[in-house]
Design a protein around this nucleic acid. Structure first.
Length: 690
DNA sequence: ATTGGCGGA
């Protein structure tokens, strides 16, 4: 298969068919030692002696001196390491021990907050210091560093924010871009920023910047080429062998095939060997959970007791935590998960992985402004990532519900997010750094249409003067200060003109968080009834405002959220976002203001940033978007779903089955003529407003 | 007539 694969892991064996009854899904196998990415090490409470022993037993420890000398010799290196190699915790310590950091900081980026926090806690424990002293972390809302911090774990997004203040990142002597294979938008932009900073610092004879890229991918030449053929160092991991099976025949229903496979395994495997199944979404997972529970009833006594655990991000946290409880003796867990279990969540004790080979992917279409959420085939790299989830404690098995030929036809690597998402924010950030997004040295260039679409929208919002121009207006500079979609930043900055900053802050904060509504399937009617008292007939935005106003007024927040079927965690997050935004507004010298009960002001203010998102009722329930002439419908979760007003403003349009408008408010077409007269003229919207 | 993969500032 892939030659590099064999370098890191064990030997590849020829695959052979297994003898199974013809009524089941037939698999062929090939024994492989899975290639894996690095997960944050769990913080375990241990004495200092044991900690040192643990450190010394890590594979990376044995090659310490070679690693140091390579990193010392080269200004940029790529390090490929398997899970359990200890690269993320040890290599920064090694560099610090020999003072490679000199008079600067070693910054280590992570795609996720929890990883940055737990890693820095682990490393400060290993170095026998308090977290926040020599070792610290910086994530949104939380900065646990001090004057003496030398090893700083931070989210990639945080380092990008720091680059906004200093493009040369002068406080750092070494930057480690960890988990680079995940290719988050933030890491991808950082690639270019860090490379530019390194070159400029050399050019200006400033202190040099060393770059270390850490990844688990097979496609490492790509990273190396980007920096000009820099050395690649491979690290051994501590991964157990995993036997991989492919379906011998093409399956036409991957959900059903997964279900069949679960029971094939369940009937043969000893108790306490758990199964992890990768599926694509909440609905699919809940449906399969119901099927399994029904089938289990008919199996009585013949097999170990089988317990089903759904796992997806919108699941309340206490239900997510259930997954981590060890399986009771004589039982078996089957976890039905989205790709959350691929990277974000690590479950111990998994012996079997069943891979549907599918994933839900969001793709932005700049011409129509439409986001499409579609089920697609995964990439080979992703398939290996899933496979690896079976071999964390001991040897394991992975059943791929697709043939080897289908595997072979998959993309080697997934399309990076930067090539398929809305780039308005990225482009605004680059322009704020005086970087031309059309010539920026991306690791992988996004399609021209995405960059142009972003420039177009920034021009509409008044952030730039001309689409060709790369200079921000005063408005654009202010917008770039906010950690928001530029349309929301625009609304926030307009709020002073409408005297409703208090209200807009609450709404924008809630739009930045996940849904606050909790609707357990078993208590659906009760939950909806509880939500109804917050509903506003003018739409979802004012409904969100009503919720936030009530939330901030009550003292017993936990109980209140429970009674009203609202998600406490998401409301608290929104409240943190709100404080941060309020502080930024204050820094922009904006006066606080409130429209109290005159909430029409709020909807008018929303128009200043979302005027391109207007839709008009065509016939019953069918709307037409004014700018892109798309046929759409209001999302069933909207309070306007059954009211269908003549003219609405929407926050986003997403195609799942049909095209749906989400977060919708009724607006008076007359407002458009007052608020965005040029836009109305340009788009000949006079029929709408007359 | 009927519903939201995962992160992050």
């Amino acid at each position: 298969m892939d030659s590099k694969y064999n370098l890191v892991g064990g030997k590849s064996c020829p695959k052979f068919p297994t003898k199974k009854p013809a009524t089941v899904v037939n698999f062929g196998s090939s024994t492989k030692k899975a290639r894996l990415d690095q997960r944050p090490t769990e913080v375990t409470k241990l004495g200092p002696g044991t900690l040192l022993q643990q450190r010394k037993s890590l594979p990376v420890y044995g090659v310490r001196n070679r690693l140091i000398s390579e990193i010392q010799k080269h200004s940029t290196v790529i390090i490929i390491g398997e899970t359990g190699s200890g690269k993320t915790t040890q290599i920064p310590q090694f560099m610090h021990e020999v003072r490679l950091d000199k008079n600067g900081i070693i910054g280590i980026t992570q795609p996720r907050r929890v990883a940055a926090i737990t890693l820095s806690q682990r490393v400060s424990q290993e170095m026998n210091t308090d977290c926040g002293a020599i070792v610290g972390y910086t994530v949104r809302f939380e900065d646990v560093t001090s004057e003496c911090t030398k090893l700083k774990y931070l989210t990639d997004g945080m380092l990008l924010r720091e680059a906004m203040l200093d493009t040369l990142l002068m406080s750092y002597s070494i930057i480690v871009l960890d988990e680079a294979h995940e290719r988050t938008v933030h890491t991808d932009v950082l690639f270019g920023i860090v490379k530019q900073a390194q070159a400029l610092r050399d050019e200006k004879l400033l202190k040099p910047l060393k770059i270390v890229v850490m990844s688990a991918t097979m496609d490492v030449d790509h990273f190396s080429d980007y920096f000009g053929s820099v050395p690649i160092l491979y690290l051994e991991g501590r991964q157990h062998p995993i036997q991989v099976f492919h379906a011998l025949h093409r399956q036409d229903d991957y959900v059903f095939s997964c279900l069949v496979t679960i029971f094939q395994i369940h009937q043969d495997a000893p108790a306490n060997q758990d199964i992890l199944v990768f599926l694509t979404g909440q609905e699919e997972i809940e449906a399969m959970a119901r099927s399994i529970r029904l089938i289990v009833k008919d199996l009585d006594g013949k097999c170990p007791c089988l317990k089903v655990y759904p796992l997806y991000s919108s699941l309340p946290s206490h239900q997510q935590l259930d997954v981590f409880r060890p399986t009771p003796q004589g039982m078996r867990k089957v976890i039905l998960s989205t790709n959350i279990a691929e990277t974000s969540v690590t479950i111990s004790g998994i012996k079997y992985v069943i891979d549907s080979g599918m994933v839900k992917v969001r793709t932005h279409h700049p011409g129509t402004g439409l986001d499409v959420l579609k089920v697609q085939r995964i990439s080979q790299a992703q398939a290996w990532q899933r496979t690896g989830r079976a071999g964390r404690e001991s040897s394991g098995f992975c059943y791929r519900v697709y043939t080897f030929q289908e595997f072979d036809a998959m993309l080697k690597n997934s399309i990076p997010e930067i090539q398929r998402c809305n780039l308005t924010n990225v482009v605004l950030q680059l322009l704020a750094l005086e970087i031309d997004p059309l010539t920026f040295n991306f690791l992988d260039k996004p399609p021209k249409e995405l960059v142009n679409g972003a420039l177009q929208q920034l021009k509409q919002l008044g952030a730039i003067d001309t689409v060709e121009g790369t200079k921000l207006t005063e408005m654009g500079h202010q917008m770039a200060l906010f950690p928001l979609d530029p349309r929301f930043s625009k609304i926030l900055l307009s709020a002073k003109d409408y005297g409703c900053l208090e209200e807009i802050l609450s709404i924008v904060a809630l739009l930045s968080s996940e849904s606050v509504f909790v609707i357990p399937p078993s208590k659906r009617e009760k939950a909806v009834a509880a939500h109804t008292k917050f509903f506003s007939s003018s739409g979802d935005h004012i409904t969100l405002l009503n919720i936030y106003r009530s939330f901030s007024a009550v003292t017993q927040k936990k109980q209140w959220c429970h009674e009203n079927f609202l998600n406490m965690r998401n409301l608290q997050y929104a409240s943190e976002v709100r404080s941060q935004l309020a502080e930024l507004c204050q820094r922009c010298k904006m006066q606080m203001s409130s429209c109290n009960q005159n909430v029409d002001q709020v909807r008018k203010c929303l128009v200043t940033g979302l005027f391109m998102n207007i839709a008009e009722l065509q016939r019953e329930r069918q709307y037409l978007t004014v700018e892109s002439r798309q046929i759409v419908a209001i999302h069933p979760s909207s309070v306007l779903y059954s009211l269908h007003p003549h003219c609405v403003l929407f926050t986003e349009v997403i195609q799942t089955g049909s095209c749906y408008l989400r977060q919708v408010s009724q607006v008076d077409p007359e407002w458009l003529r007052d608020i965005v007269p040029e836009y109305v003229q340009q788009h000949r919207l006079l029929t709408l407003v007359s």
